[in-house]
Amino acid sequence: MPLISVVICTYNRYEVLKKAVNSLTQQTLDDDKFEILIIDNTPNAETGEGASVKRDFESIKNLTYVFEKTPGLSNARNVGYKLAKSPYISYLDDDAIASQVWVEEVLNAFESFDNVGVVGGRIAPIWEIPRPSWLGDALVGNVSVVDWGGELRVADSNEWFAGANISFAKKVLEAAGGFSTNLGRKGGGQVLLSNEESELINFVKQSEYIEVYNPKASVDHLVEKKRLTRDWFRRRSAWQAASDFMMNPSEAEKNLADQLTNIKDYLCSLPPRYRNLQGLYFATDDAGEFQWQLSAIYANTILTLAGFDGLEGIEDGKE
């Protein structure tokens, strides 16, 4: 029986997938101590390029290649953990490259503490194009850049993990019912729903399990050119609001008046010609201003989903 299982879910990204798998063939942990599960969610993969890629991987003895027709990242992740033969499940993005000690250090994190529910690690960016000036440090988490520094430890309450490099005890996934299929990416990224990991981490927080961060369990993660546009970040902000609302509507609906004030303050900070809906998508190279724009988009999405309930009668400049 393997000590730990690595699950990679993929959707028509075979070139980057090969690099991810190659990094797993160079691990310091012996390959008979861990297994690799590829869950291919690409439409018609069995009769298309996926069949050829599966054959390419046949020489990797600890790798199992699975075609999964039901769409959705959350479903693919659930298929992966249910097939896994070990007590620990590590999820690696198909466009990530694991450090040589990654699997060993994830396993070390689980075995260094009692009742570990989730392990997160460092995620360093591979910028496909130079990082834009409008992308400030406060926003790089949106492209899964994670670096909390320090040593192996129980994570602080303000330290979050990203799905490109996250691992769960299988018993936690089973107890929680896996990843919510109402959340998570679908269609190769057209639908930017998220929070499927956050929901599981909340389950960990509310149980007897603990969260552990190990900076040595590190991966490099591709930040594609298509994500390094203002449009993508605007979409990401709106979909984050939708994800938060779907996961916990009552929490998302708190402080709607503050959300409205944020939008008004943002628009009033702009030149007069942008003090309308155009202000939510005009181009700016200023990192701080762009961050504020995204927060206004988030707030506007929450207000729309809430139907502006409870805001009737609020006058300009009053709460």
Results as ranks from 00 to 15, higher is better:
residue 22 N to H: 12
residue 86 S to E: 11
residue 77 R to L: 10
residue 300 N to Q: 10
residue 25 T to R: 12
residue 201 I to K: 04
residue 91 Y to G: 00
residue 24 L to M: 11
residue 178 G to E: 02
residue 65 Y to E: 05
residue 83 L to M: 14
residue 238 A to K: 03
residue 245 F to I: 09
residue 269 S to A: 15
residue 150 G to Q: 07
residue 151 E to L: 06
residue 80 G to Y: 00
residue 168 F to S: 00
residue 139 L to K: 01
residue 125 P to G: 08
residue 137 D to K: 13
residue 89 I to Y: 06
residue 139 L to T: 09
residue 69 K to A: 15
residue 180 S to H: 01
residue 206 Q to E: 15
residue 96 A to H: 04
residue 35 E to N: 09
residue 149 G to Q: 13
residue 246 M to R: 13
residue 285 D to Y: 13
residue 132 P to R: 07
residue 65 Y to F: 14
residue 192 L to M: 14
residue 92 L to G: 01
residue 207 S to P: 09
residue 251 E to P: 00
residue 56 D to M: 12
residue 88 Y to T: 04
residue 105 E to W: 01
residue 41 N to Q: 12
residue 290 F to S: 09
residue 105 E to F: 00
residue 181 T to C: 05
residue 88 Y to P: 00
residue 304 T to S: 13
residue 18 K to T: 14
residue 176 A to L: 06
residue 304 T to Q: 10
residue 156 D to G: 11
residue 2 P to W: 04
residue 9 C to T: 15
residue 182 N to M: 09
residue 65 Y to R: 01
residue 244 D to F: 03
residue 70 T to F: 04
residue 59 S to T: 14
residue 186 K to W: 03
residue 231 D to H: 12
residue 303 L to A: 05
residue 165 N to F: 09
residue 116 V to R: 01
residue 190 Q to N: 14
residue 70 T to M: 05
residue 271 P to E: 15
residue 70 T to N: 04
residue 84 A to P: 05
residue 292 W to V: 12
residue 314 I to Q: 12
residue 82 K to W: 02
residue 229 T to I: 13
residue 61 K to V: 13
residue 82 K to I: 05
residue 1 M to C: 04
residue 230 R to D: 02
residue 257 A to Y: 08
residue 156 D to F: 08
residue 233 F to T: 07
residue 95 D to F: 02
residue 223 V to E: 06
residue 75 N to H: 15
residue 306 A to K: 02
residue 77 R to C: 08
residue 176 A to T: 04
residue 117 G to K: 02
residue 146 V to T: 11
residue 254 K to I: 10
residue 36 I to C: 09
residue 34 F to T: 02
residue 31 D to W: 06
residue 236 R to A: 13
residue 4 I to S: 02
residue 140 V to D: 07
residue 247 M to S: 13
residue 59 S to A: 15
residue 221 H to A: 10
residue 99 S to N: 13
residue 305 L to V: 06
residue 105 E to Q: 15
residue 118 V to H: 01
residue 146 V to I: 13
